[in-house]
Design a protein around this nucleic acid. Structure first.
Length: 198
DNA sequence: ATTGGGATCGTCT
DNA sequence: GACGATCCCAATA
């Protein structure tokens, strides 16, 4: 039998709470795992985060490894800010800064399951499948580019109707075994990629 | 289902 | 001047 809250529809729109600064102030590997099943919301587009990777300062695969530069400055800033970089001459990748200011840590958002704004994502991606199942695809679907670099995800934006990461009470039923991060040539021994198991 | 190459440019050596 | 925290398509098995 269906539970009463389902039948009455009382919980059809579960409480949705923006993640606060504290959430992001832990070490990147911990934040990364906690980010699974949270909601990425930008404008009318929403998706559930299902794959992430952690990067830290003492990690040769990290942009922050060789110190602060103009590009990676957001990684060294306060936690909970969006770090967007451009790569391969054509793709953007979205990260969230973590840990303490000056630490140079971030979590790369690799994949989300689209929930809302799918039509817009289809339009931006130019196809109906594989809308956000990769870091570059995710950015294209959500229209994330360098103009959003540094934006604070823990406070309402004065530039967009909504941008942030939210908790709707959903947790991963199971996290897949940690695996090597994708597309790197060093630091491959750190199993810092996590995804929601199907 | 898996593999390999090309596109393309900002960033750092 | 080289090389990406990638994606897509074509070719092969």
């Amino acid at each position: 039998m269906f539970p009463i809250w389902y039948v009455t529809g009382l919980d059809e729109v579960p409480a949705r709470r923006r993640l606060g600064r504290e959430f992001f102030q832990s070490e990147a590997p911990e934040v990364a795992q906690h980010l699974l099943c949270k909601l990425l919301v930008i404008g009318s587009c929403e998706g559930r985060i299902v794959e992430v990777e952690a990067y830290t300062r003492d990690d040769p695969a990290s942009h922050s490894f060789r110190g602060r530069t103009d590009r990676n400055a957001v990684m060294f800033g306060p936690a909970g800010h969006l770090y967007v970089y451009f790569t391969y001459g054509m793709h953007h990748c979205a990260n969230v800064s973590t840990a303490a200011e000056g630490d140079g840590q971030a979590v790369l958002l690799r994949a989300v399951v689209p929930l809302s704004g799918v039509d817009l994502m289809v339009q931006r991606r130019g196809r109906e499948q594989h809308l956000a199942d990769g870091p570059g695809k995710l950015c294209q679907a959500f229209a994330i580019d360098r103009s959003l670099n540094g934006i604070d995800l823990c406070a309402p934006s004065d530039r967009l109707p909504v941008i942030g990461i939210f908790d709707d009470g959903t947790a991963p039923s199971r996290i897949a075994q940690a695996s090597p991060r994708v597309g790197i040539r060093v630091g491959t021994e750190r199993l810092w990629r996590w995804s929601v198991a199907l």
